[in-house]
Simulated assay, not measured.
Amino acid sequence: MLKKPQVGRKKSISPAEIENEDIIMREKGSGTREVFEETMAKNNMRYRIKYVLNNTEAIKKAVQANIGVSVISKLAVKKEIRGGRLVKVDIENIRFERKFSIIYHKDKFKSNLFEEFIKHLYNYSIR
């Protein structure tokens, strides 16, 4: 979960605490929202989506303005977290995971560079 930094904030919250947060989420049909909703349902967690925005930058700005909290790709907020404008807060015993697939034509020639790229994706995904 992503929040605006505040002094004395916890690094994690209990699943029950998420019920009291104003959630800022992507629109229906986005992969991020699907992962969020599936994970919350699987863990029988209640939540309230207060705002729906259609792009990552708008969500980051809303969280920075302390309008609410969000679940978003860590790669999308790496710079803001490093700069102290946003903080990552874990929900205890909850892990949001999104799976991606790489597809290519079955007859495509796989160059060494292509094979290295596939290895890189695999190594990155198991971190």
Rank of each mutant, 00 (worst) to 15 (best):
residue 1 M to I: 08
residue 1 M to A: 10
residue 1 M to G: 04
residue 1 M to Q: 05
residue 2 L to N: 06
residue 3 K to V: 09
residue 4 K to Y: 02
residue 4 K to P: 01
residue 5 P to H: 00
residue 9 R to S: 11
residue 10 K to A: 07
residue 10 K to W: 02
residue 11 K to W: 07
residue 12 S to W: 06
residue 13 I to M: 02
residue 14 S to F: 06
residue 15 P to V: 00
residue 16 A to M: 12
residue 19 E to T: 03
residue 19 E to M: 01
residue 19 E to H: 02
residue 21 E to F: 05
residue 21 E to T: 05
residue 23 I to G: 00
residue 24 I to P: 01
residue 25 M to D: 00
residue 25 M to N: 01
residue 26 R to Q: 13
residue 26 R to M: 14
residue 26 R to V: 08
residue 27 E to C: 11
residue 27 E to F: 10
residue 28 K to P: 13
residue 30 S to C: 04
residue 31 G to E: 13
residue 32 T to N: 15
residue 32 T to E: 11
residue 33 R to K: 14
residue 34 E to A: 15
residue 34 E to Q: 15
residue 34 E to G: 15
residue 34 E to F: 13
residue 35 V to Y: 04
residue 35 V to M: 07
residue 36 F to P: 00
residue 37 E to T: 12
residue 37 E to S: 06
residue 37 E to P: 05
residue 39 T to N: 01
residue 41 A to V: 15
residue 41 A to N: 15
residue 42 K to H: 08
residue 44 N to S: 13
residue 45 M to N: 02
residue 45 M to L: 06
residue 47 Y to N: 03
residue 47 Y to S: 03
residue 49 I to K: 01
residue 50 K to W: 06
residue 51 Y to N: 11
residue 53 L to T: 09
residue 54 N to D: 15
residue 55 N to L: 08
residue 56 T to C: 05
residue 58 A to W: 04
residue 59 I to V: 07
residue 60 K to N: 05
residue 60 K to W: 03
residue 61 K to D: 11
residue 61 K to W: 04
residue 62 A to D: 04
residue 62 A to E: 03
residue 62 A to F: 06
residue 63 V to S: 00
residue 63 V to K: 00
residue 63 V to W: 00
residue 63 V to Q: 00
residue 65 A to T: 10
residue 65 A to M: 10
residue 66 N to E: 14
residue 66 N to T: 09
residue 67 I to M: 11
residue 68 G to N: 03
residue 69 V to M: 03
residue 69 V to R: 01
residue 70 S to G: 04
residue 71 V to N: 12
residue 74 K to N: 15
residue 74 K to F: 08
residue 75 L to V: 04
residue 76 A to W: 02
residue 76 A to K: 05
residue 77 V to I: 11
residue 77 V to C: 04
residue 77 V to G: 01
residue 78 K to F: 08
residue 79 K to V: 05
residue 80 E to Q: 14
residue 80 E to H: 07
residue 81 I to E: 03
residue 82 R to C: 03
residue 84 G to C: 13
residue 85 R to M: 12
residue 85 R to N: 14
residue 86 L to K: 05
residue 89 V to P: 01
residue 89 V to T: 05
residue 89 V to L: 03
residue 90 D to G: 04
residue 91 I to D: 00
residue 92 E to V: 07
residue 92 E to K: 09
residue 94 I to N: 00
residue 95 R to C: 07
residue 96 F to H: 03
residue 97 E to L: 14
residue 99 K to I: 08
residue 100 F to T: 10
residue 101 S to M: 11
residue 101 S to Q: 12
residue 103 I to H: 09
residue 104 Y to D: 11
residue 105 H to M: 13
residue 106 K to P: 05
residue 108 K to N: 13
residue 109 F to L: 12
residue 110 K to G: 08
residue 112 N to Q: 08
residue 113 L to P: 04
residue 114 F to A: 08
residue 115 E to V: 10
residue 117 F to N: 08
residue 118 I to D: 06
residue 118 I to V: 12
residue 119 K to I: 09
residue 119 K to E: 08
residue 120 H to P: 05
residue 120 H to A: 12
residue 120 H to Y: 12
residue 124 Y to M: 10
residue 124 Y to V: 14
residue 124 Y to I: 13
residue 125 S to K: 10
residue 125 S to P: 14
residue 126 I to N: 10
residue 126 I to R: 09
residue 126 I to L: 07
residue 126 I to E: 07
residue 127 R to Q: 13
residue 127 R to K: 14
